[in-house]
Nucleic acid binder design. Structure first.
Lengths: 144, 144
DNA sequence: TCAAATTAAATTGTGTACAATATAATCACA
DNA sequence: TGTGATTATATTGTACACAATTTAATTTGA
């Protein structure tokens, strides 16, 4: 039953389940992230901020695979919410330094619940999760 | 060096590489999809149309994990490009029937090049790809 | 049988994503 | 040292993505 269009069947794609899975998982974060007033993208941005305290937009973009077109409005929102500050670097005014605030640091204590709540929500065997993690990072490494 | 915030580190996430990988792969489709005047979402919608010829919006949404909020404007765009038609079902006027046109079917012959071009662009061992495919579908199955 | 519930699409509003372009600061080097 | 190239961020325009709501058609059950 093979025909010349088999490569265009949805079930033969690798990218499609990747795309669909990512969306479905992010969707499942929503009820938990709502409680701490963050979207998923804001949440991963805050992860970087919690770990590094101070970064510029370019560095943040490299961590998250996002560019200034996405990050500029997102960081303005996080600033409005009081979780980060934004100011130009004195040494090189092209750089915009993003710093986590005290309020942003306090949020971290609420946010630690999120991974726990999620692991209760998505049942995926430890071994499978480790395999998936390894393969995704292998693919990401190929991109650089 | 373990601390109570380890679960919030970007490197300990499973969702983040999923999210990042999906975006990076979709981005790599762009130059090839530009040649046939489709975005990635329009491309996977056309995959369903090429295979099934005629579906309603609900069915299409089930195949693609998308809702009418995304599909309605997307299908209007595909209609404007002449690749599909949209009309209400006679039997049940709640249903909108989407049909692929002759122009849409012709596009398929151009589109078969895309998976070939992509496989030349993303080098990922056959075994890894098969593993990844299996794990992603296992996760998607858990969601239903 | 007909009003309430359900269903399918469409609409509205918010928030990404990203390509392309613009702007401003800094760097490199002739 | 000045100017052309480079770099970092911001802006603009297009296209998703989805929650929440609306509208219209159909189904259900007292």
């Amino acid at each position: 039953m093979a025909d010349k269009y088999d490569s265009l069947k949805l079930e033969n794609q690798l990218c499609f389940p990747l795309y669909a899975c990512a969306k479905e998982v992010v969707k499942r974060y929503k009820p938990f992230l709502d409680k701490i007033d963050l979207t998923y993208t804001q949440y991963i941005a805050m992860m970087v901020m919690w770990e590094h305290k101070s970064v510029n937009v370019k560095e943040l973009g490299e961590y998250l695979f996002l560019d200034s077109g996405t990050l500029t409005p997102l960081l303005k929102t996080l600033e409005k919410k009081g979780f980060v500050t934004r100011e130009r670097s004195k040494e090189d005014e092209r750089n915009l330094i993003v710093k986590v605030t005290d309020k942003g640091l306090k949020l971290r204590d609420e946010a630690v619940k999120v991974p726990m709540e999620m692991s209760g929500c998505i049942k995926f065997e430890k071994e499978d999760a480790a395999q998936l993690y390894r393969l995704l990072h292998k693919m990401l490494d190929n991109f650089e």
